[in-house]
């Protein structure tokens, strides 16, 4: 249907992951001391990057 779903999927994970990871770095602050924003933001960035690259390769 003309639009590869992996493109918006990759983009939204890159943006939200970026916001969270950036905020995590900024608040490195008083989840058992785990910087969830940084850790999970990086996981989301990685997933977003994989999806984005897969979509670009196909197109």
């Amino acid at each position: 249907m003309g639009l590869d779903i992996r493109l918006p999927l990759g983009l939204i994970f890159l943006i939200i992951g970026g916001i969270m990871a950036g905020y995590g770095v900024f608040t490195r602050s008083a989840s058992q001391g785990i910087n969830l924003n940084l850790v999970w933001g990086l996981v989301m960035l990685a997933f977003g990057l994989i999806m984005f690259i897969a979509a670009r390769k196909k197109s």
Binding site: M1, L3, I5, P8, L9, I12, F13, I16, S31, Q32, I34, L36, V39, W40, M44, F47
Partner: peptide, 27 residues
């Protein structure tokens, strides 16, 4: 098509939102 594409987006966001909750909760 829009509903299906958004449902895929929503699926991954639901997993992304709840998975760390389960992980940190179990810890």
């Amino acid at each position: 098509t829009s509903a299906i594409y958004n449902e895929v987006l929503q699926f991954f966001l639901i997993v992304a939102g709840f998975l760390p909750l389960v992980w940190i909760g179990l810890r």
